[in-house]
Write a protein that binds this DNA or RNA. Structure first.
Lengths: 197, 197, 197, 197
DNA sequence: AATGAATGAGCATTCATTCAT
DNA sequence: TATGAATGAATGCTCATTCAT
């Protein structure tokens, strides 16, 4: 299995740095190779093509991300606390890896529709986690019973994504985590209250 | 003024169709020209370069969008009604122009950072409109006084954007407007209720 | 006859200025038209194509040049004096028209072989004039009887051309005419003296 | 070092042939590549851009030219003999490489001013060689003491250049070397004799 | 005669991928 | 495994020329 060899991760990490520093379209395969300290041709021993590097990058990073997130959330019982944990962790993880933040929020979106569909496939696991929190909240009576889970999940993900993208576009120069509490409150209000009128 | 000549809009409309059908990177200038029924060189009588077509496209379409939106909203007095109107119109307008939906939600995001900053510049007008609704709601007591406007705006825009993108990625095959009411409720709940506990 | 209409010369003069200021390859037909104060299309009422402007330009300017030169020379009796007059006039005329100097020495040489052959055709009249001086000098016994006229003419023209080109390449910043006397001496020495040994 | 690899010279030689046969402006990079038997992209592994091929071509050919010329001249003691050797060699070398003659006398002059300045830079070495011959002749008393070296050099170079260009423009169909002796005589007469009167 | 909007052919260069070593 | 020299397809833009008005 290629994924267990050191050069596999070496190349992926090089890709994150190269793309974050140079931008998606300015990052040629040869630049990733140079950053990784391998020859151009070596890349193709570990990845099918350039697109495969990007998908693998996303799988590795978001996969790790989702696993850690799951673990963090399991220690909380209530859906509200789980959601708070999810938002805080989401912000913290990206704050701690500025290169990855740039790559996921800005650069990878410059890829074509086909690649984005594959990226969405990887994201599904994470979105499912959100769904589980929401379903739990409904089951426990924390959220209203007629909550539209799909919609609620899109609200959560869309809000976080917009917040983070804006933060990255502003060169990550303010504290993203400081807004975690406020945004969680607004989301929870949206989910818990009975339908107005 | 070039913008008043018929070919200006002819080319922009052709660009929307060509990009929606072929994807951003597969849309050569010659393809736009063919779609518009003009020679390649004619494009350059109306636009500085290929990027300028895209920026102009966005300005024309989102500019029109924002103007219409402003007019629609002014006939409503309450912020809640204004927000409902905004969401409904946003969904309706994109539903009525499927090509434009694909271009704004998927294809235009594949542009480089520089172009995206220009696009954001155009978007500002629309985001300001949301801010005005929110501020009105606070002033009227509809929304809680300590509402974080920036956050609320990001929640609105992020949620709508995520909903629409998902809808477009699913080939626009379900009724987006049907969710308008539900999402407005959730957003309003988030803004109106007092901070929990 | 087109050549008698004012716009004919208006366009040629505009071409000299435009080419001198912008360089041969940077001088589009539209630039000449703008400089001449006419529409692009108007150019083609007076000239067959772009190349025709250049040939006509050369014909007009060098034609005038040759006619003036002939007149100047006729007042001198001796070949040596005629040659001196030719060199002085050649230098003076180009010194007095810096734009033309740039165009003939630098810019027009960037044209293709075909155009250069036509230019050479125009030059023939001038070269013939030199030949006449040389033949006169031989007939009068000023120059040695076995002087190779073709070679002598190439020496005269080549030397002048090289001197002027160097002067133009150095932005015409020194006094070209100051060297006239010296160069004439050297040339005359080359022609008059008996074959050495 | 790229210059030591066989493909470097392979491409330069191909460029000489392609430009001589097709003309400067009709010689696309792909044509040079085809002539050299390499792929278009390979050109760019050895040259920065198309202009760089031309400059390198000139450097290689004229560089070799100047080196050979220096060696040939050193075996002669008298300036007159050195000049005769220079003219003969100059003619012989270009006669032996008809393609190069076309390229240097006609095609390379069609380049823009910037490129021509670089070409002149390369030529300087050759012009310096002429200056050294002239200075030697003055020191030895072969040439008159008040000889203007700059002028004499321009006369030599200008005359040779004009002769060769005319010869190339006439499709090299006569024997250039046959005129070497005569032209040298005329030049020497110009330099050696005391100022007339 | 004059205009100028419209035309469309033409080309240097990049870079993902291959493959002989 | 690893290399890196070589490949060659792909495209935005310019500008001389035309022609309807």
């Amino acid at each position: 299995m290629k994924k267990n060899k050191p050069k596999y991760h070496q190349i992926i990490d090089a890709a994150v740095i190269a793309i974050a520093e140079n931008g998606y379209h300015q990052t040629q395969v040869s630049k990733i190779a140079r950053q990784a300290g391998v020859a151009d041709g070596t890349i193709y021993l570990y990845f099918k093509n350039k697109e495969d590097i990007l998908i693998s990058l996303f799988q590795e990073k978001v996969g790790t991300f989702a696993v850690k997130m799951k673990e963090s959330i399991q220690i909380k019982a209530k859906a509200a606390e789980q959601l708070r944990m999810l938002v805080e962790n989401h912000f913290t993880m990206l704050t701690e890896d500025p290169y990855l933040a740039v790559v996921t929020q800005l650069e990878l979106r410059q890829s074509n529709k086909e690649l984005r569909l594959k990226i969405n496939e990887v994201l599904k696991e994470y979105l499912l986690l959100i769904d589980q929190i929401l379903q739990g909240g409904i089951d426990d009576g924390e959220f209203r019973s007629n909550l539209n889970i799909r919609l609620a999940r899109q609200m959560i993900f869309g809000t976080l994504d917009e917040m983070i993208t804006t933060w990255v576009m502003n060169d990550q120069k303010y504290d993203l985590t400081a807004s975690a509490s406020d945004v969680v409150e607004m989301l929870l209000n949206g989910f818990s209250a009975e339908k107005r009128r």
